[in-house]
């Protein structure tokens, strides 16, 4: 068992945990954090595979993914602030109407 397999197993575990956070938690902010965890697990996997096969394209892609994740979380959190302003709660059950 080498370092690469261990890190890939960690990435699989982090992916599963983020998946469960997105599925099971009811807070919108927890769902956003779960998405960040999923992206982080995917990044870890891409970088380790790219490093193990002596390439550099994976690291460049991960650089772009991190940038897009920053943009995504900024947009998501501003939507969340709007949700809290309109419904008084950020639970997913409370957001039942489309018109705020």
């Amino acid at each position: 068992m080498t370092n690469e397999i261990l890190i890939q197993l960690l990435a699989a575990f982090l992916f599963t945990t983020g998946f469960l956070v997105v599925l099971l938690r009811r807070d919108t902010i927890m769902i956003l954090m779960g998405i960040e965890l999923l992206l982080n697990a995917a990044n870890l996997s891409i970088v380790t595979f790219s490093k193990a096969s002596n390439m550099i394209e994976g690291q460049v892609q991960v650089f772009f993914i991190i940038t897009i994740a920053a943009a995504e979380s900024a947009i998501g959190l501003s939507i969340l602030v709007n949700l809290y302003r309109n419904f008084g709660s950020i639970k997913t059950q409370k957001a039942t109407t489309l018109k705020g």
Binding site: E36, A70, L77
Partner: peptide, 20 residues
């Protein structure tokens, strides 16, 4: 992967988590 480690610290652990 020192470059990616630095970007991860600055952007993810710095900016995004502060926003959260």
């Amino acid at each position: 992967e020192h470059m990616i480690a630095t970007i991860q610290l600055v952007v993810y652990a710095g900016a995004i988590m502060v926003l959260f």
